[in-house]
Amino acid sequence: MNFWFAVFRQTGRNLRQTWTSQFMTFLTVSLSVLIFAFFYLIYTNMLGTGDRLSDDLRLIVYLEEEPGSEMKEQLRRKIKNFDDVEEIIFVSKAEAYEHFVTQLGDDSDVLTGMPENFLPASIEVVPLKSLRGYNQIKLFSEYLASLPGTEKVQYGQEWVERFYYFTRLITIVVLLSGMLLILTATFMVAYTIRLTIMGRKDELELLRLVGATNSYIRTPFLLEGILQGFMGSVIGLSALYCLFQWISVHFAGPGILNLFQFNFFSFRVILLIILGSIALCSLGSYSSIRKFLKF
């Protein structure tokens, strides 16, 4: 109780004495958290979108002609040879035509006079959820295209390709900004605390002589690191939330954001980012304490 009172008093003195560099550190930490969280937010939302996209992902194999029941069995076996699949649906010419008619709805009269078998028969292959990566889908589609009697395979190649490349890019950016966060948080905090310690060498020396315990001398600096980590991450995340709100309001309506169905972090992720930032900043202050307050 009294110990913590003394520690808070001492921390307050530290903050007052070096408030300019404290403030700079605080800004750097918040900015790093903001940058990291910004890309991480995009990343998690991309993953969510990716999940939804691959939920609907199906490969459509167009066939040269209507397969007989024997042929169907053969194709089914061949497909399963490559990999187990979620589902295989055969669509006959007639079914394709019916499907098309329902899709057209009121406009279906444009089809009058067309033969009911002008659409090709096809197989809809729903790959297993485990078959996610772009390369695997591509390999699978190439395999399907090589089966005898197939004409072509479609799955929105270009879209999927771009999406996967973009995801990979974002992953790298998230890792880089995460590293930036680690470096700035630990080094900036270590640096400011070093500055404080250097600026108060006389006092720390005197405190030892009048019988201050190590924890009395050290805890305020550790607390300072924790405070920097906490304040920095809370302000950084708040700034991101404001940005997020602003974008949601100004870019509402049909558009790419709706496709993505953008969500802010869950409470758990927010907590993790704050705790991570606190841990990093404490680490920074601890390293300075270890280096400059050893006795």
Binding site: L206, R208, G211, T213, N214, Y216
Partner: peptide
Amino acid sequence: AHLRQKIGVAYQDFKLL
């Protein structure tokens, strides 16, 4: 530290802040 709390020293060079 606890023993030092029981010893008061007035230094020749004062050691005041």
